[in-house]
Design a protein around this nucleic acid. Structure first.
Lengths: 218, 218
DNA sequence: ACTTTATAGTGGTCAGACCACTATAGAGCC
DNA sequence: GGCTCTATAGTGGTCTGACCACTATAAAGT
């Protein structure tokens, strides 16, 4: 059975990225050029590009072109969340998988974290305090803290798998989340995790993180 | 700034699914009907559908229509893997991430494995012996064994994240793999892992699996 | 009632038109 | 020569239409 044209185009685009050594920010050939080059219709090219766009792998800008993007997984998480909301099992899988990834990333981080990353995490905690002092919930800092933890694993794939999972968790759970954790507890827990990571105390950081993930809003 | 038409269509499709209480297996309105209903071009509808299709949320069949599907996430994992694994540290990240996933999946399996899955794993081991007795390397069985382990976690997402990692590993490492494991050791190790899993001895199964993954060809 | 044929409807792909926007090149002015 | 403005080329965005291959359905024939 012949595979659909847009799937073949995805593969070809991947090849082009590989052969031309394209990086995030670099520009892909135009739709018309791709169509000509691959001997397909422009509509088919567009179908493929829309798929990639939803994965946040590319961004297309009118008048400029199509650019490779470092994936944030935001759009896909939103779409998945909307489609998954009614499937209890899938939600469990996402939450569970996200926790697994994060915990194992932090385990790796105990060996690999760089001083600059520790500094960054510390700064995020300080920013949390500052935000909270101003009377605002430090939601962004909460996210950034967790992201920085996973980043400290020095395993980019884990980070890229983790991101859409977290985005999904945020969207999927936002209307039903029971907040078990006040903001000051959250910041305290971040601080505790950070201190354990600084000491590279694997057992303690895992324990504290697991505890925190049980209490966390996402 | 006006959002792209295809993103609006995604939202409308979601609404239709919700209002019509559509479930996996149910059919969406035709492309032409959607285009008319939403007052957009058919091409735009197709762009939206391709996005959903890549997420495995729908399946479109020529002559029949477009159906809601229970997502397996296979295609997306494949595409994401292909796009992420170009980077410098990709190989290490893949191998490491795959191990993490597999080990954690097996940890879950110790609580969750079903008798039918144990039976399946046992059958795969028997098939390995049979294949090897015939003088052939039991490569397929090796893969199937690992897949069945991850499957036993009852976390479909883990399985779907694991698959492309393994596929990549097979392709990327195949020319440089140093085979540290003879086939009979491999089968013995599979057997040992299986026995520990049957006993639901988490510590032992993790230990044996880690050992095996160090020796394994993929 | 069953089989065959014709028709309607489905998705799949491509070409083409035209629009809004951006980038680039060229002309004109100081 | 440098700067500004204008024109043109190129980009994506969206829609329409044509035609194909396949499936579903209805009607006709046995």
């Amino acid at each position: 059975m012949q595979e659909k044209v847009y799937l073949n185009i995805l593969k070809e685009i991947e090849q082009i990225i590989y052969q031309d050594q394209l990086l995030p920010g670099d520009r892909l050939p135009s739709e018309r050029e791709l169509a000509e080059r691959l001997n397909v219709g422009r509509s088919s090219v567009r179908e493929a590009l829309r798929s990639l766009e939803l994965l946040d792998l590319i961004i297309t800008r009118k008048g400029e072109g199509t650019f490779i993007q470092k994936s944030g997984g935001r759009k896909i998480a939103e779409v998945l969340a909307r489609f998954f909301l009614r499937e209890e099992r899938a939600r469990r899988d996402v939450v569970e998988t996200r926790k697994i990834i994060e915990i194992e990333a932090v385990r790796l981080a105990c060996e690999r974290v760089k001083q600059s990353q520790l500094d960054k995490i510390e700064a995020i905690i300080k920013q949390s305090l500052s935000t909270w002092t101003k009377g605002e919930p430090p939601l962004d800092e909460d996210y950034l803290f967790h992201e920085a933890l996973v980043e400290s694993s020095q395993n980019e794939l884990l980070l890229n798998v983790w991101r859409p999972l977290v985005e999904y968790s945020r969207v999927a759970l936002k209307s039903t989340a029971s907040i078990k954790n006040s903001n000051d507890n959250m910041i305290n827990e971040h601080q505790t995790i950070f201190e354990a990571l600084k000491r590279k105390d694997e057992e303690e950081v895992i324990f504290q993180l697991k505890n925190h993930l049980e209490n966390s809003r996402f």
